[in-house]
Design a protein around this nucleic acid. Structure first.
Lengths: 220, 220
DNA sequence: ACTTTTAGACTGACCAGTCAGATCAAAGGG
DNA sequence: CCCTTTGATCTGACTGGTCAGTCTAAAAGT
């Protein structure tokens, strides 16, 4: 029996440094993530039992603890994993737009679309993110702050470039604006999924885009 | 001993139909609300125990159950109470602006300010609202849908008036825009409180106002 | 006189985390 | 080829603790 079956330090997805690409563990972990994200989004972290997660993933309870040090750790790694996907998706959307010769404002618009698509694809992840983000709770503060920072940085960098290119006013408060934009997309997307699922992505995108481009209260 | 010590039907704040304006109960209920909102915002609903709530309110556990049928009911009434305050505050801000001869877009701006002030005054309530709003969970679905609807209606009515007055384009998707605006304010305010508490309300208001008035990507 | 609060013991259910043993898959050995 | 070994992976009954909700008799408030 090994001393510590799971990742000991910080960043660990299961694959050991120089060893083989990890056998079934990866698959088991993935199934546990998938089960946990849905259940926790539905019921909340505390209300979701480890037994439920194990059941839904089709494994025994012990397996959960073989793969993750605790329920808390499972949640943290889940969060990190998922939010990294979102940040990556936003970044790619922005880069692609700029690479294709689009404006920086166009890149912002592309990020809105990418955000909507992402949330439409896996609303549960975003639900569990916003549900915990502003807790004064110490437990996951570090993890949450870190994933929030990574997503915000992407938006901020695009805003920064846009200002540098003269597309946006230099008076813009980049940090606050990035947070507001992210919030706008987040809430609109979750509201859309929960309360108006009949609307198309295009509708939602158009409404947000209009807001971004100042065609609500300012523009022509 | 009475059959059911607490409100039997739907809307009950403690004052019986024709009786006296309720003795100490009102005060006890208020203290329980105040204790619960802070604890639940910090830790989440499931992680907060009834004993903790009673302790913090300086009341015996039995008193909680004398005043509320269950932990769930306490939470629901808390939510309804608090969100009604927010809706009222938004409505008043809008009405005051229009009454003072301001534009409808000005009313929107005033609502943004009112929302920020409200959240700054009691961030806990809003934390617990967003933490539960998008849960697929059946338990409080009805309550949450209802309080969300009441707040959104206020924003939608102002948007509607603005369109009617020709201040905003008739192509505006009122429902989606209202949801996006509310989300923008909500997230910006919570982010401000949690991650940039050093910023002033004016800064945050200015950033959001700029977004609303199209001076981010569209304006002059 | 009637309502409201107290203090806290108690219960029955539920749950995170543990552990000793079962099972698997891969790499030899014959 | 089939058999054995080895370590990694998985299993599920079990433990110790926690918590919502109940109940009491008496005290306090109005």
């Amino acid at each position: 029996m090994s001393v510590l079956p799971v990742s000991r330090g910080g960043a660990g997805d299961g694959t050991a440094p120089g060893a083989a690409p990890a056998p079934r563990r990866a698959s088991t972990r993935r199934r546990l993530f998938e089960a946990a994200v849905v259940l926790i989004a539905e019921q909340g972290f505390s209300a979701t039992t480890v037994d439920e997660i194990a059941d839904r993933a089709g494994v025994a309870k012990g397996t959960v603890y073989y793969n993750f040090a605790s329920k808390n750790v499972l949640y943290e790694e889940l969060l990190r994993d998922g939010m990294d996907l979102l940040s990556g998706s936003l970044r790619r959307a922005a880069d692609a737009t700029v690479a294709a010769g689009g404006s920086h404002v166009g890149a912002l618009d592309a990020m809105i679309r990418a955000g909507l698509d992402f949330i439409a694809g896996s609303p549960a992840l975003m639900q569990l993110y916003v549900a915990e983000l502003w807790r004064t709770n110490r437990t996951w503060r570090a993890t949450l702050t870190s994933v929030r920072g990574r997503a915000l940085t992407v938006v901020e960098s695009v805003l920064h470039d846009a200002v540098a290119a003269g597309e946006l006013s230099a008076e813009l408060d980049i940090s606050l604006t990035a947070s507001a934009l992210l919030g706008m997309v987040l809430v609109a997307a979750l509201d859309w999924q929960s309360f108006q699922p009949d609307r198309s992505v295009e509708d939602v995108h158009a409404a947000l885009s209009r807001l971004l481009q100042g065609r609500v209260a300012g523009g022509p």
